[in-house]
Simulated scan of single mutants.
Amino acid sequence: MLIKTLYLIICLGIFSLVLANEAAFVKKSKGDAFVLRDSKEFKISVGTKIFEKDTIITKSKSSVGLIFKDDTRISIGANSRFEIEEYLFEPENNKEAFVTNLAKGSIECITGLISKVNPEAFQMKAKTATMGIRGTHFIVRVD
């Protein structure tokens, strides 16, 4: 009985990862950077897949470059905490959402298709503000 229960838990875990909404992948990584997923921390390297609800954490002298499915490009600077709260890119169904939170640190962003086809769907939160992005290139720093 214990083995069957353990097997079921493992299968459900794998199934939930398959259903998880992949948002981006790591294009560049320098120094100590981690992704926090389901209360577990994993070291980031080039090619790491990033999912909705992930938090990217960079340490001193570290940076991470992400490319999202909609071609948004985000560079995360040193000593940062960047959370992907919601990400949905299904242009064939007219469903888009890009909601992130820069809890601390800095990012540079070149927006992709979501901000062009549905500007209201692109939001960047930062401590005391939420920004609706209408441009294509911006930098944010949170102390």
Rank of each mutant, 00 (worst) to 15 (best):
T72G: 08
T48E: 01
F89C: 01
G13Y: 03
F89R: 03
L36G: 00
N79D: 14
E83H: 12
F82K: 04
A121M: 05
K69F: 10
I139M: 04
Y7M: 04
E108M: 04
K125P: 02
N93D: 14
L6Q: 09
S39G: 04
A103D: 08
K127S: 15
I3L: 14
F51T: 02
S16F: 10
E96S: 08
L2R: 05
I57M: 02
T58A: 09
I14M: 11
S16C: 04
K95I: 12
V64F: 07
F42S: 06
I74G: 00
F122R: 05
S115T: 14
A103R: 10
R73F: 09
L66Q: 10
D54Q: 08
I10L: 13
S115I: 02
G77C: 01
I50N: 01
F25M: 03
F138W: 03
L2I: 03
T5Y: 06
A20F: 06
K28E: 14
E83I: 14
Q123M: 11
S60D: 06
V140G: 01
E86V: 07
S80T: 07
N93S: 13
T58L: 10
E90N: 12
Y7K: 09
G77K: 01
I107K: 01
S62W: 11
M1I: 02
I3E: 15
E41A: 12
I133Y: 01
K104T: 06
K30E: 09
K28W: 01
S80I: 07
K61L: 13
R134Y: 02
K43G: 06
Y7A: 07
F82H: 05
F15E: 09
F25D: 02
G132D: 05
S60T: 03
V18A: 09
K53L: 11
S39D: 15
S39R: 12
D54E: 08
S106T: 12
D32C: 01
S80L: 08
A97E: 14
I84C: 03
F34T: 07
A23H: 09
A78I: 02
T128V: 07
K116Y: 04
A78K: 14
I3V: 13
P119W: 05
F82L: 06
F82V: 06
A23F: 11
V46Y: 05
K40F: 15
V142S: 06
N93E: 15
C109V: 15
D32H: 05
N101I: 01
F98C: 07
R73L: 06
S29G: 09
V64K: 00
V117L: 09
K127W: 02
E86K: 15
S106Q: 13
E92K: 10
S60Q: 04
R81V: 08
A20E: 06
T128C: 08
I56Y: 07
V26Q: 00
M1A: 11
T48D: 01
H137Q: 14
K95V: 11
N21Y: 09
R37Q: 11
F98A: 06
I133G: 04
I56C: 03
E120L: 15
G65S: 14
D32L: 11
E92N: 03
N21S: 08
K59S: 04
A24S: 13
S80P: 05
E22T: 13
A23S: 11
M124Y: 01
G13I: 03
I3K: 14
N118I: 01
L17G: 00
T130A: 13
L113P: 00
K4S: 06
